[in-house]
Design a binder for these strands. Structure first.
Length: 151
DNA sequence: GCCAACGTTGGC
DNA sequence: GCCAACGTTGGC
């Protein structure tokens, strides 16, 4: 089992939005970065644990825990001309984008990016590295355990 | 709104 | 394959 951190803009999908979904699950649609796609398509397995992170907002940081509940499959929005995620180069025979589905586990207190940066134990956390913009990043077990310990 | 740090695109 | 131009991310 692996650990991940997944960013979402709360104005798009917040942790509360996830908790309010019918089965408390959501398709992680809209990823249009190959590295992030590859993590979902090639490495994520059902049961992997996820830190849910709010980005591009007034209080960026970890806000909850989720779990991968469905393996990657083609992202439906790439085929929808009305979607902002439409990709004219994608076809059903050759889909370009994939998404997993995640399930709400629980909310946590807000662990802001400034606090995350304050812990030497988290110095190697991927999202804290300069210039890292990946919306999905792996989290080392040691990093996961450390953060679980400060929640 | 700014801007650093990317990733992608497309002409050559 | 190179690389300049462009678009995006995301904290501040």
């Amino acid at each position: 089992m692996r650990y991940w951190l997944m960013k979402s803009e709360p104005s798009d999908v917040s942790i509360d939005d996830l908790a309010a979904m019918p089965a408390r699950t959501i398709a992680w649609y809209g990823v249009r970065n190959y590295q992030a796609r590859n993590f979902m398509r090639d490495q994520m397995r059902v049961g992997d644990q996820v830190f849910f992170y709010h980005s591009s907002c007034s209080e960026p940081g970890i806000v909850g825990i989720a779990e991968v509940c469905k393996l990657a499959y083609p992202d439906a929005t790439q085929f929808d001309p009305a979607s902002k995620y439409f990709d004219p180069k994608a076809t059903s025979l050759r889909p370009r984008w994939f998404n997993v589905e995640v399930k709400f586990i629980r909310k946590t207190r807000l662990v802001g990016i400034k606090e995350l940066r304050s812990y030497p134990d988290l110095a190697s956390l991927r999202i804290l590295q300069t210039g890292n913009r990946l919306s999905i990043t792996p989290v080392d077990p040691a990093e996961w355990n450390f953060i679980m310990g400060i929640l």
